[in-house]
Write a protein that binds this DNA or RNA. Structure first.
Lengths: 247, 247
DNA sequence: AAGTGGTCTAGACCACTCT
DNA sequence: GAGTGGTCTAGACCACTTG
């Protein structure tokens, strides 16, 4: 029996380049958990002979995955599967006069299981009426409440969160997701809009009802592309600030 | 006399890769106007022998310039110097229910030469008190005023704009800059914030004073990296909408 | 010193675009 | 068919990291 490490040389789909096919194969191996997030992959030389392509081709594949944010290459050390977003900092959208990279203190206000409303279901990518977990979370800097977050999580996946003591949930949610539920957030989309605070929201944020606020609607996805979180964040509009460069 | 087309093989600065050096050389040739925006550059093969490097290395240099948005490669046709931003559409920040890619009608409200205030000078990157041209511009969709823009332009460069009939200025500013003053906008930075409309602003936009508005502060740069425009745009905050993906 | 990713070369062939 | 950029190969050497 042929037990050489060499896999069958990838057969690119017609119209697809070989390095794209290799990249897809590697992506599968990553998603299947062959190299868990944060761990190192085999060397380029070994991967190349493994997939039966030249080194240059293998490198093109890795470059592609790197551009997609799936892996990270460190000169002299190796190629690593990127662990989830350490925390896609909401604070980058706001200027509260906080120190660089300061992590706001978090408090969970409410937690309850529910069924997905049509709107939530659509944005989570699940069927209407599916069970979800809903959190409300207040984030403060220097004792001052700054951000109010409404979070919906698909439930079969996040069952472990239903009963965990609230005190165990740290200030950063994504690392906690990964440690407790094995869910790594790989990608997120933020949509920015604008609204007025409701009376309840204003009270939590120590502002007045009708105060203008920025609304950040986030959808977070895991490696396989499933939406694993819907989060709607409200914060003082006058503290909002964001910068984009176009070319 | 040696008159071969081959240039002296680039000598990369220590700590710099060869392809980076080639890219820098090409960037210079572009900025110097050797290949004007929109025109095609010589073939990769010819550029490679021209700079005395292997084809692969030359391609790495072009890839770098391409990532920087300086050039554009078209399979089977050639490599082209990117012409300026056709118009970095302000409308992408707003949802006015306009059709896709619809260009708002523009009207110049005021035009006057002035000297740069400290703040304007800083953001334009010129000395305080330098002459500038100030425009105020109202942009409408379906007859409805939607965006109010305050624009500052450095004056020696934009002299031609001081006397041109306002009617000659079309709905898109950047192509007009390029045609009239030879200034191509290659890159722009937009900073987003929120504020309240002043009475004058509100009147122009057909809204009420104190109405919440989104403020987009744009700095536009030419190929050489000089700031050639400062623009502050105000629009209804409730029409604001923007989306970012992070990985 | 050994192992990793990064750069560079020289040459072959493929896919697209235009005439 | 001629010219362009895109892919692929095989091999050499460089630069960074670690034991």
């Amino acid at each position: 029996m042929d037990k050489v490490v060499t896999r069958k040389p990838v057969e690119p789909d017609p119209g697809q380049s070989r390095y794209a096919a290799v990249a897809e194969a590697l992506r599968q191996r990553i998603v299947n958990g062959e190299w868990p997030p944060g761990t190192g992959m085999p060397s380029e030389t070994s991967l190349a002979s493994d997939h039966g392509v030249a080194l240059g081709t293998l490198r093109q594949a890795l470059t592609l995955l790197s551009k997609q944010g799936l892996i990270e290459r460190r000169h002299g050390k190796g190629t690593f599967v990127r662990s989830g977003l350490a925390g896609a900092p909401m604070l980058r959208f706001f200027r509260f006069g906080a120190g660089d990279g300061e992590v706001p203190e978090s408090r969970i206000l409410t937690r309850k299981a529910a069924v997905a409303s049509p709107d939530v279901a659509r944005r989570l990518g699940v069927a209407r009426g599916e069970p979800v977990l809903r959190l409300q979370r207040l984030r403060s800097l220097a004792g001052q409440p700054r951000l109010l977050e409404d979070i919906w999580l698909p439930l079969p996946v996040f069952d472990a969160l239903v009963d965990v003591p609230l005190a165990d949930i740290g200030n950063l949610l994504y690392p906690f997701f990964e440690a407790t539920c094995g869910v790594a957030v790989a990608r997120a989309t933020d949509e920015i809009g604008f609204a007025m605070l409701s009376a309840a929201q204003a009270k939590a944020l120590d502002l007045q009802a009708g105060h203008p606020c920025a609304v950040v609607t986030r959808q977070a996805y895991d490696l396989a592309g499933r939406c694993v979180e819907l989060r709607i964040t409200h914060g003082d509009a006058f503290a909002f600030h964001y910068s984009v460069t176009i070319t």
